[in-house]
Amino acid sequence: MSPLAASLLKVAACLGLMLANGVVMIWMLRKVLGHLHLRYGPLEAGPSGIFQTTMDVLKLLTKEDVTPNAADRALFYVAPLAVFVPSLAAYAALPFAPELRAVRLDAGLLYTFAALSLVPIGILMAGWASANKWSLIGGMRAAAQQIAYEVPLLLSVLPIVMLVGSADLGRIVEAQSGVWAGFLPRWFIFDPLLLPTFVVFAVAALIETNQTPFDMSEAESELVAGWATEYSAMKFGLLFLSEFSNQFIISALAVTLFFGGWLLPWVPESVSVALAPVTFLLKTYVGIFMLMWIRGTYPRVRIDTLMQLGWKRLIPISLALVVVMGVVIKALPALARVVG
């Protein structure tokens, strides 16, 4: 098969996963939030309402596509794409199994973050182009949020890169194989040095995905629908598809970095490899369930509280963790060599 056709197929596969994930996650969100609120969630369309999202997609496709008169037309049309394309691109480096991924990148971790870092720009574009004060406030909040979370998010994964000696997501997963003390999987979450790293990563990742308690850019109860207020029909669909896809990506990244990726502990390697994609997806959806649990539980924080948290707490903490990691893996062995 020619390399061009192979690349096109890979893009199509990522797109298929993204669409399927959107449909599954919307239904899951309604069910999970419903049960957290002591409701049932959707019930009518299909058993347990599983066809509710399919119906919603049909509805979105047939709705009237409204463009406000005052909108900046060019940007209003480009913005959904500017949100959607980076989100789709971020799938490329995720390792679903030892050999199953779109591209093997030396700096796969950096690539995923680079792709995700473009999403808030699309949100800002949507907010400005809508010519609506709610949208603009939402877009500006998204941009301010991004400046605050991006540095701690990148710094928080640095200790892992230092420990593994590679930013290749596949190598990071392989470094987590095996068990400690006979039963504890060697996942990085169980490493006492990396546990605080995970906390910083988790908070920054929540901000990254615009999840409650950090969903100020959308903020239904104060900004109507934030930056997406003026969008309707499939443009709205694209924007929200990307939101859900970002949550999938960030959960998949957390699984890859801290929870052993596609590895299964306590089973022979052949079984682990055979079940790899299933394991990976299951772990990712457990992560998504946690995100939804948080979403159904906590109230939204204020934007200035978030700025304080990002700049004054997360950045110093993540810098300190990098220094600690450097001392433990480089300075202490060197000292031991000198002394011993």
Partner: peptide, 18 residues
């Protein structure tokens, strides 16, 4: 290329727009 996207496209242009 990645650093160009992350720093210039991802951060600097957000600052400019902001």
């Amino acid at each position: 290329a990645l650093v160009q996207v992350l720093v210039y496209a991802g951060a600097v242009s957000v600052l400019v727009l902001f």
